[in-house]
Amino acid sequence: MLTVVLFTAVKMMAQDDPVSVLNKINVQMEAVSKRYVVYQSVVAHSDNLRKAEKRRQEMMNQVTTARQSLAEIPYYKGDRMLHQAFGEYLKLVEYNLNEDYAKMVNMKEIAEQSYDKMEAYMLLKDKVSEKMRMAGEKLDSVQRTYCKKYDIKLVEEQKSELSRQLEKISEVSKYEDKLYLIFFKCNVIEGDLLESLDKKNVNATEQLRSSLKSFAEEGSAILDTLKGYRGDNTLVTACRRSMEYYKKAADKYADFTGFFTKEANFNRLKQQFEGDKDMRKDKAALDKYNNAVKEMNDGIGQYNNTNDYLNKYRSETIDFWNNAVKQFLDRHIPVAD
């Protein structure tokens, strides 16, 4: 969710104070951006979680340093415009890095506007991205206003390497997000479904089963319209494969709920049989009961087989997806250190 913008590159046309203020701030901004690119690079190209965490921490420290430095940069003619905008922006970057979203967006409003935790997550993601985007735009517009006010001429230079890297990270993330969302919906529903299966809750399981099926079908339909990222179909393929799994699983879960209804029926029968002495002595009834026991045992065997099959299929699917994401990011996120 984290994207960082950079000030428009400035060519100094005047040598007086307003420019020096702008430059000093820009130096801090660049330092933060560089740390961000390094952090993203490690996430994309390394399996080392500790290393990634270390880079995150370094970026955090950089943000803190930037905020401290900002306090030391004097205002030009008491004008706080730039300081305020940059300060606010840094605060948001910090919250975002710490996943402290409650300080960025109105969580209560999100809870009210979204129907369930899945929608809440998606809405949160949207709102945080939107917040960062707007903060970036504001920073840019304040900078322009500042320049205009003090007659500083902004010249659009060729993009710096850092700018290009930031843009690339943003573009790749957006593409990955789009596909992740398709996967995410099914993944959440299946998680809920597994929980309800654990509780032998047929009502919830059956509802979620139908939901899983329709999300997987909807996902497949979206995938049909999506192209690879610059010719790279890794994510589309992996996502399509996961949709195939979810469709298949949605059908297979019916075996479990079917089993629960049979199990309830058998328990009723068992109670009746065990509570009735005459029935236990009756050969025909005994045969029927033993037959029911055998059927029940067969049912349990099938249940276990299906369960093993789905567990294996699920973990393969999720591994495949995770690997695909990894490969994709490795291929497209710029390397930086």
Partner: peptide
């Protein structure tokens, strides 16, 4: 009052 689970069983 909300429907807790997504999906339907009978349509």
């Amino acid at each position: 009052i909300k429907d807790v689970n997504r999906g339907t069983i009978y349509d």
